[in-house]
């Protein structure tokens, strides 16, 4: 291509001649034209699992050590990427920050620290089995760790930091650990996404406080949002994003306190609750 073809001027701006030359990227027709079913998945063989902070790590060795063994065992059959979330300390710092009047973006900036602590501990527990801390967006290094049979680990919360959009109600960030891990799996084009918590899955209400809560083994994100349940085991922002996802068309929530559920979930067996995309 000659320079003449690559660059154009004439309206006072220097343009690069592409399909998007001089375009407003807002124009709806242009946005629609970028749709495709041929999007490239980065590591489509990788399975993403999330270890709950409050549900697992805060429970200490009796919950964590058996689960660590299961993750290490599962690594033999699956390429895994492990996310970790915050727990009680996260709730505590949010409470203090809200009381101090800190804005949503400021709260989001605080979330990662609690996860970093939990990740540091889990990484130490699994280091001898090849667990490594993958720094935030170093996804380009993942193929190396996976090809060498290692267990890359990351914090879950998305790095929106100060740029966390204002919440639709209140000031607690809507994009928490669940959403962050979901987007991690989506960005990787992962084969599966499993959230490891301390309940068998999704109930119509919190089973810890309401004994009449009914278990739901399979439901679409759309139907779940329409039910508007009083308590949800997963953030609503995940359900909304699942509806638009290109790669992660379903996710599974399992009870990490029950032995064997992780292996079954990774093998694709029906265990826990599966939430799927319905457009």
């Amino acid at each position: 291509m000659s320079n003449q073809k690559e660059l154009s001027t004439g309206d006072g701006r220097v343009h690069l001649n592409t399909g998007l030359r001089g375009e407003s990227l807002v124009r709806q027709r242009l946005v629609n034209s970028t749709d495709t079913t041929e999007e490239v998945a980065m590591v489509p063989y990788c399975k993403v699992i999330g270890v709950g902070g409050r549900s697992i790590v805060d429970r200490g060795r009796e919950a964590v050590l058996p689960l660590v063994d299961e993750i290490v065992a599962a690594r033999k059959d699956h390429d895994l990427f492990v996310g970790v979330s915050g727990g009680a300390r996260l709730r505590h710092v949010f409470h203090i920050a809200l009381d101090l009047g800190i804005p949503t973006g400021g709260l989001a900036q605080l979330a990662g620290a609690c996860e970093e602590q939990n990740l540091a501990m889990l990484q130490v527990l699994m280091a001898r089995h090849g667990a490594v801390h993958l720094k935030r967006d170093a996804f380009a290094e993942l193929p190396m760790y996976l090809a060498n049979g290692m267990i890359p680990m990351t914090i879950s919360v998305p790095p929106y930091h100060y740029w966390e959009p204002p919440a639709r109600g209140g000031r607690v960030p809507e994009n928490g650990s669940d959403l962050g891990l979901f987007m991690t799996a989506e960005a990787l084009g992962a084969a599966a996404l499993v959230f490891i918590k301390d309940q068998d899955g999704l109930y119509t209400d919190d089973p810890a406080t309401n004994p009449d809560a009914e278990f739901i083994d399979r439901i679409s994100a759309k139907a779940l949002m329409e039910r508007d349940l009083p308590s949800l085991i997963i953030d609503r922002s995940v359900l909304e994003t699942l509806q638009n996802a290109r790669f992660i068309k379903q996710l599974t929530i399992i009870n990490g306190l029950k032995r064997g559920t992780l292996a079954r979930a990774l093998a694709g067996e029906p265990v826990g609750t599966t939430i799927y995309q319905e457009r």
């Binding site: 629609n32 970028t34 495709t36 790095p159 929106y160 991690t184 989506e186 994003t241 638009n244 996802a245």
Partner: peptide, 16 residues
């Protein structure tokens, strides 16, 4: 640009 990068949510239609 906000630091969303890999965490930018997919839109219902299109990829911008």
């Amino acid at each position: 640009m906000p630091p969303y990068e890999y965490w930018e949510k997919p839109a219902a239609v299109g990829r911008i």
